[in-house]
Design a protein around this nucleic acid. Structure first.
Lengths: 127, 127
DNA sequence: ATAGTTTTGCAACTCAGTTGCATTAAATTA
DNA sequence: TAATTTAATGCAACTGAGTTGCAAAACTAT
């Protein structure tokens, strides 16, 4: 499993997530480390950290890929981050929601994961 | 409002959806009309039909854009197609689900829409 | 230090989706 | 039904997120 070396690139990315516990799109992350780190590396570091269970990914609107820190209890073995996400259509910010949404069982289907994205206006943009 | 001309391109696309009431990705649609219609036209026709309330769109896994025929009652004024979708991770097929999923209200947020995508194995791929 | 891997940077690529513009085809009017 | 207006189409070139191959650099262990 844990074949993630603690390289400069890895700590740079982790620092970003630790400095501000907020979901970020890959595009934004690449922007944040511009000049310091190559975009290919960003993609690869994120991949590895997700496999390690340190961060989790999901698709925002427009199909862009986003990442956020995992809740406690995630590991490379199992991801518990099946929570819904909310994205503001004005400022584009994403929030991880700790809602427990119950989806009725589907007959004759094996459901592995549930992606829920709510769109609307966040608190700041509402007022 | 109804500024959609009934062109050959429009009827070609509509025929595809009527021949088989099944969600289709744009990529697949372009493939289906290859040689007959330009891909730009496909995108534009789909855009217009969605605005008219004839079809609705959503993002499949991998962020690809998908379209499916609308339920009765949709129009350019309001789309009622907020139903969840199920996508098979083996054969990639998508099904529109007529489940009613209740999402708890979010404080201080204005929620406009809810995108739900379930991933797993469909009936055919389960057995 | 040395050897063996993993990581990184870079450049080139893929592929979904978009744009500008000239041409064509609907719909409208006379 | 021919002329006119306006929307729709085709084409080519572009954009931008994400990927790939490979050589060079940086970890880790011996």
């Amino acid at each position: 499993m844990g074949i993630v070396r603690k390289t400069k690139a890895v700590t740079t990315v982790l620092n970003i997530f630790e400095a501000q516990n907020e979901a970020k799109s890959v595009v934004r992350l690449i922007e944040l480390v511009k000049g310091v780190m190559n975009k290919t590396t960003v993609y690869r570091v994120l991949d590895r950290l997700e496999q390690e269970g340190v961060i989790h990914s999901f698709n925002g609107r427009d199909g862009l890929k986003w990442y956020a820190k995992c809740d406690e209890g995630c590991s490379s073995h199992k991801h518990l981050d099946s929570h819904p996400h909310f994205q503001c259509t004005e400022c584009d910010k994403v929030e991880c929601l700790s809602l427990d949404v119950k989806i009725p069982k589907l007959k004759n289907h094996k459901v592995d994961s549930t992606d829920i994205l709510l769109l609307g206006q966040c608190e700041a943009c509402c007022s």
